[in-house]
């Protein structure tokens, strides 16, 4: 694996997958790949949110390399709540 690539474990709606990503690319680039790998085709990437293991949202425009993710990091990608809240 080249130096500028990293494997990230991403849990999509509870389903784990590993995405190979370029460390110079913004974090949002892993979303489409993770969705594709897990067969989640129903909603576009902007309707998903990426969080760390503690549940904190991650800034998607930040470069992947700048996060200094640990080798065993797990990120959690989940569908946003969307419209709702009106009975």
């Amino acid at each position: 694996m080249p130096n500028n690539e990293v494997d990230l474990a991403i849990v999509v709606n509870g389903q784990p997958t590993v995405v190979r990503a370029n460390t110079n690319a913004p974090l949002r680039t892993v979303i489409a790949r993770a969705l594709e790998q897990t067969g989640n085709a129903g909603q576009p990437p902007e309707n998903w949110e990426l969080r760390d293991a503690a549940g904190a949202p991650l800034p998607l425009d930040q470069k992947i390399g700048d996060f200094n993710f640990a080798a065993d990091v797990r990120l959690f990608l989940n569908l946003k709540a969307g419209v709702g809240g009106v009975a």
């Binding site: 709606n13 989640n40 549940g55 989940n78």
Partner: peptide, 19 residues
Amino acid sequence: LHRRSGAGRLVRLLETISK
């Protein structure tokens, strides 16, 4: 309209309630 996006999956629903 939502079935294929995993909207009804256990972890997704728990994430929303927890959030």
